[in-house]
Simulated scan of single mutants.
Amino acid sequence: MMIHDNRQCQLGEGAFWHPERRQFFWFDILGKRLLSQDGGQPLEWRFDRMASAAGWIDRDRLLVATETGLAILTLADGSLADVAAVEADNAATRSNDGRADRQGGFWFSTMGRNGEPGLGAIYRYHRGEVRKLLDPITIPNSICFSPDGGTVHYSDTDRGIVWRQGLDTDGWPVGERQVYLDLSAAGWSPDGAVIDASGGFCCAIWGQGAVMRFDADSQRTHEWKVGGQHSSCPAFGGPDLTQLLVTTALDGIDNPDEAQGTTWLLDSGLAGLPEPRVIL
């Protein structure tokens, strides 16, 4: 375990590995910026709005969830081109978690800026269409997909519950959701998550400075510790997709030390899956 990037994020989130650029990207939501590195050199894109999650379209463009909706970010010049307005007229909410699915779609969530109960929702973009899938929910998080693309996972951090639900061949939800994990009794708050190549659910636990892995039977199999208390989002990457990047947050920590809000990298001992491309 080591610090990958010592730039402190107010709220690190939305980590993913870009398979064509071979770089990790992650957001500082409250800092209104996207961070990365190239050859160890820090990179940063600053925005005029909060942004929180992205999927890659091609080498040079990302589809980004922002507080006013979806936009295409051109990495070369940092420009944002709006694609779809989502809750743009609601000053009480912002975007939160998000991840590309294996059918070329992109799921993203919204929530109250102060975590107000029931202000959140989960949406999906698919080939030009944005559809609201779930509301109300308080802090929607942990959006990630099974290796075969047939199951979505998502959580309400506030309740400590993770659900899973089936998806059809186009990636739309079918049937009733089922409780996959109830972490409320342990006092654990599931935040960002990613699925590994074996189908394990690897979830950052807010407040615990850790990523925990659970198998298909909801049994905990692994725990990776990081130095930042508010671990917020993991992503597999690196040459063989065995490195695990973990974002953390300064938000909500009194008298933080230098480790809080930094971004960590460790050897997971497991393999991840390539992040899918978003199809416009």
Score class of each variant (00 low, 15 high):
residue 221 T to P: 06
residue 178 Q to A: 15
residue 118 G to A: 11
residue 253 I to P: 03
residue 271 A to K: 15
residue 201 F to L: 12
residue 264 W to K: 06
residue 85 A to S: 12
residue 23 Q to I: 11
residue 152 V to T: 02
residue 155 S to E: 09
residue 15 A to L: 08
residue 223 E to L: 11
residue 18 H to P: 00
residue 176 E to R: 15
residue 250 L to C: 13
residue 197 A to S: 07
residue 67 E to G: 01
residue 207 G to W: 00
residue 249 A to G: 14
residue 111 M to L: 15
residue 262 T to V: 10
residue 196 D to G: 00
residue 203 C to M: 06
residue 125 Y to I: 00
residue 142 S to E: 14
residue 74 T to P: 05
residue 87 E to K: 10
residue 60 D to E: 13
residue 125 Y to D: 03
residue 85 A to P: 09
residue 62 L to W: 10
residue 228 G to Q: 02
residue 71 A to H: 11
residue 64 V to C: 08
residue 62 L to K: 08
residue 205 I to V: 05
residue 198 S to D: 15
residue 60 D to N: 09
residue 55 G to A: 05
residue 48 D to W: 01
residue 127 R to T: 15
residue 22 R to D: 10
residue 277 R to V: 05
residue 75 L to W: 03
residue 81 A to E: 15
residue 173 P to Y: 04
residue 78 G to V: 07
residue 21 R to T: 11
residue 248 T to I: 05
residue 207 G to C: 01
residue 25 F to Q: 09
residue 162 V to F: 02
residue 231 S to V: 05
residue 106 F to E: 04
residue 166 G to W: 10
residue 3 I to F: 05
residue 193 A to T: 09
residue 194 V to L: 01
residue 122 I to Q: 04
residue 195 I to E: 09
residue 43 L to V: 08
residue 23 Q to C: 12
residue 38 D to L: 14
residue 274 P to S: 05
residue 102 R to K: 06
residue 205 I to L: 04
residue 155 S to G: 09
residue 65 A to P: 04
residue 23 Q to A: 11
residue 210 A to Q: 13
residue 105 G to R: 00
residue 250 L to F: 13
residue 117 P to D: 14
residue 54 A to T: 11
residue 214 F to A: 01
residue 130 V to C: 10
residue 137 I to T: 12
residue 7 R to I: 13
residue 130 V to T: 05
residue 135 D to E: 15
residue 10 Q to K: 14
residue 51 A to E: 02
residue 93 T to C: 00
residue 110 T to H: 11
residue 91 A to T: 08
residue 44 E to Y: 02
residue 164 R to D: 08
residue 246 V to A: 04
residue 217 D to M: 01
residue 175 G to Y: 12
residue 167 L to V: 04
residue 226 V to Y: 09
residue 225 K to R: 09
residue 275 E to P: 07
residue 174 V to P: 00
residue 26 W to Q: 05
residue 27 F to N: 00
residue 187 G to Q: 01
residue 205 I to K: 04
residue 216 A to T: 07
residue 183 L to K: 09
residue 152 V to Y: 00
residue 76 A to Y: 06
residue 136 P to L: 05
residue 201 F to H: 12
residue 120 G to R: 01
residue 193 A to L: 12
residue 50 M to I: 00
residue 140 P to Q: 03
residue 228 G to S: 06
residue 84 A to V: 12
residue 253 I to T: 02
residue 39 G to F: 01
residue 161 I to R: 14
residue 136 P to A: 12
residue 13 E to C: 08
residue 106 F to V: 07
residue 37 Q to M: 08
residue 71 A to V: 08
residue 37 Q to I: 09
residue 174 V to K: 07
residue 69 G to E: 06
residue 64 V to W: 02
